[in-house]
Design a protein around this nucleic acid. Sequence first.
DNA 1: AAAGCGAATGATATCGATATCAAGATATCG
DNA 2: CGATATCTTGATATCGATATCATTCGCTTT
Lengths: 337, 337
Amino acid sequence: MTNAKKKQPLAHRPSLTMADLAELAGVSKITVSRALSESPLVNVETRERVQALARKHGYKLNVSARNLRLRRSHTVAVIVEMKPSSGRTMWDPYPLSLLGGISQELTSAGYSVLLTTRQGAADASVQAADGLILLGQGVRQDAVRLYDKVGLPMVVWGAAGQGGDNHIVVGSDNRQGGISVAERFLSIGRRNPVFIGNPDHPEMAQRLFGFVDELAGHGIKPLLLRRDDFTLESGIDAVRSLHERKVRFDAIFACSDLLAMGAIRALVELGLSVPNDVSVIGYDDTPLGASFLPPLSTVRQNWQEGGILLARKVLAMIHNQPVTSQMMATTLVVRST
Amino acid sequence: MTNAKKKQPLAHRPSLTMADLAELAGVSKITVSRALSESPLVNVETRERVQALARKHGYKLNVSARNLRLRRSHTVAVIVEMKPSSGRTMWDPYPLSLLGGISQELTSAGYSVLLTTRQGAADASVQAADGLILLGQGVRQDAVRLYDKVGLPMVVWGAAGQGGDNHIVVGSDNRQGGISVAERFLSIGRRNPVFIGNPDHPEMAQRLFGFVDELAGHGIKPLLLRRDDFTLESGIDAVRSLHERKVRFDAIFACSDLLAMGAIRALVELGLSVPNDVSVIGYDDTPLGASFLPPLSTVRQNWQEGGILLARKVLAMIHNQPVTSQMMATTLVVRST
DNA sequence: AAAGCGAATGATATCGATATCAAGATATCG
DNA sequence: CGATATCTTGATATCGATATCATTCGCTTT
């Protein structure tokens, strides 16, 4: 018997089972199972003997078997929406520090992270997970709807107000971010602010709303300048178009740091001083912003913490604890612009 | 029935099994299994009937059960070495477009990606995978050794020459990258080049070797300026220190774009012209490099393609096909510096 | 017409773990 | 001392899929 087992060519390591361990320890499989899972049902002495044996022989639990029996997988699928909807390739640093936070939190809770990059339909492998985390651009509600149907606990990263039947939303408080920029502009006496970004993007729309509402309270109506690309070039182009149209403005709220840096460069080229003539505030607190000349003022979102929060929420949902959507506070980082 | 289904708080959906499908179709489980896996053993008519039924009722394969039976998991674990060894946080854009490539390739081959961020010892969940991909800084050989012991097919991202008993290495050809920079400097007549980077880092060491060897062939010996941080500040600081020490130099090869940009900024502040007085070439082709003023010359590594290659190699190893380590060519992108 | 063959399907065992229920050993109580 | 409670262990069934071997049926072959 044992012999037969050893004989097979086994491309994969022999890895012994609980049955093998049981034989070694002179007890039954079930006792081994209990011993390894710290069950109080087994005698302390037996438990330690079994555990020692398991360590000694390098026993590895067969996860598939356990998952089959327990009807759960101890796995959370993270679905990354690949379609770049607006020049941000999804594989840029930001959403990915989210991944870092998620991975860290789930791993330390004993869960595995199944990474999925959605290309077309819902991936079948997702079905095996205990819960879902959906990372997207926020633009594509179809993805949310698609995965809502899977019926698993789900947490979506995005703008508030997208909550649905079966999922909750975690995100950065974009509205508050917009408000904080407005407050800053007001406090330094700016009266002709411009907003640059893409209001079709739910997260940016929130920023715009916060910005507009806060300014409206002081009788100011900002100019909305739509830009779909979040690149340096796009920022340059935006400012040039303002200049050509002879628009009067003394403050710019750009929806990304790159846009902001482009804007500043264009302003300087036009002979305008930042921040004396025009004040500029970006979004995201890119590492480069701090080193930019002049150092860029911006709104910081804590992505890593967001990832941790996402993970905690799914876990809570999986364990049937009550959870609610939550927006995370942003920080206005005032540097020199 | 339907009612009951809808009513339960659905912690878990009922999800039918092959046995259920078998009954519905009036055949046996095996036939269902074969039908769904496109086996030629079943009648075409039966197969289609079963498949239609499966679709209609939303049948989902129980992955755990299949994996248990087949003794494989259709999963590749990607281990991300978290310890930031040199200021690069691992969660910055580069290694992560690797992840994108990996995920894309594995997913479309029907494999799942298990994301693990190593914090301490080898994660147990890794045991369940069919293969491993190790993404690290390259600095830490201990991680490689640790996972080598697991005995699974493994592919490591890094510098060549680290190949071990049980794994192969895929990486960017850093040596060639260094050579190409040297060639460029030679072709434009530079005679006093400086290398800025950390030679303890295997990948950078390769760049340095290529750089030095190529220059040596023309009787030139570059100055090695060690910098452990790959930040803008570090680049600024490097050039300042050169200046203070009154070193003569007319070319800089910086091991990261940020270092290069910092260097350029410092040079400009010192009243030197780039590239007239000093030519500068960075590494990585950061998105911002192209928009930098002046546009940065750099060495591009194709991360995404690297990810795809990593994935293909593990898959090949898993299927017992012969594989070898491989370095990917880099591209010198000459812009204005 | 008997034998032989291939196509289609099924019965059963199995992967490795755990839940359930039963049972033996020991301790405690009236 | 017999009975009940407690502690510890085990036998068996089960999770949902697939491999192996067996079986049935129709059709060709000589």
